[in-house]
Design a protein around this nucleic acid. Structure first.
Lengths: 144, 144
DNA sequence: GTACAGGTTCAAGTGAACTTGAGGTCAAGG
DNA sequence: CCTTGACCTCAAGTTCACTTGAACCTGTAC
């Protein structure tokens, strides 16, 4: 067997063992068996973990990611959801870009406080458009 | 006085009154006084709330946003932090863009499961680079 | 003048994504 | 054979950004 034990998976993926157990409980990954009481994982789990990290970075919840992985499921609905997410991302990217520009300006602006910099405020107003349509509540992972 | 009462602020900004009280407690906004026991806000609070929303969308925590607003502080340090944040945003934007492209491809890809779409996996690998350097833990607001 | 909608405080609850702690097990090394 | 260290389970704790509930107060309308 070239299966990996949980410590190896943790080390190679950077995901703590506690999180791996948590993911298994949530159905995001599966262990292929046990050696004694210790979990064994197929090496493919590393790719899966990369996808999970990616999904999180894109703003999906773990349950959403789990659903995408589900072998059953209705592909059409998934495709639609992907498009919806992509559009959401577009809006987020737009706002982040505006924010970044605002920050860069603010960093070189002589006003004593951000709130007194008219250029920043202008950029902020632009970026703030559509604020009533905020994305759903999300949480992103802590750095390892 | 053309000050706004909390309900007006809530209505115009889209931020629930409970959140406004919470923000005040956290020092993100200030009420200019009371009419009876009811808070009054300067109309400028609306701009500030827009900035708060913007900051959140950009991935700052409320405490970070509060710090940026702080009238005291060491301007130089703040400027540096802004640049750092802008650079962080650049990286996040890059990854989100990659993810968005991945999603769009996946949405139109004929593979029965995302995990079986080689193009998606390739894009995912690209976007996943540097995954060990995830951004700090963040939370984003619920839609109103 | 009194009912009451809608404000007030304070404490506790929520959900996501984990982490931490207590107490237990067991394969490998000496 | 026995210690040891890394794993196990299960429950409870943590952080963030709020929300909700209970108990209370008050300006405004009737």
């Amino acid at each position: 067997m070239n299966d990996l034990d949980i410590a190896e998976v943790a080390q190679r993926s950077g995901v703590p063992a506690s999180a791996l157990r948590f993911y298994e409980e949530k159905g995001l990954i599966v262990s292929t068996g046990r050696r004694g009481m210790r979990r064994l994982f197929d090496p493919g789990v590393l790719e899966r973990l990369a996808l999970i990290a990616l999904g999180q970075a894109a703003g999906f919840t773990l349950s959403e990611i789990a659903e995408m992985f589900a072998p059953d499921g209705h592909p059409r609905i998934e495709r639609e959801r992907l498009t919806v997410k992509a559009d959401e991302l577009d809006r987020r990217i737009e706002r982040l870009t505006a924010m970044r520009d605002g920050l860069r300006h603010a960093a070189s602006c002589p006003a004593p406080s951000l709130l007194e910099c008219p250029t920043f405020l202008r950029i902020a107003r632009l970026a703030g458009k559509g604020q009533l349509q905020l994305p759903p509540r999300r949480a992103v992972v802590r750095a390892g």
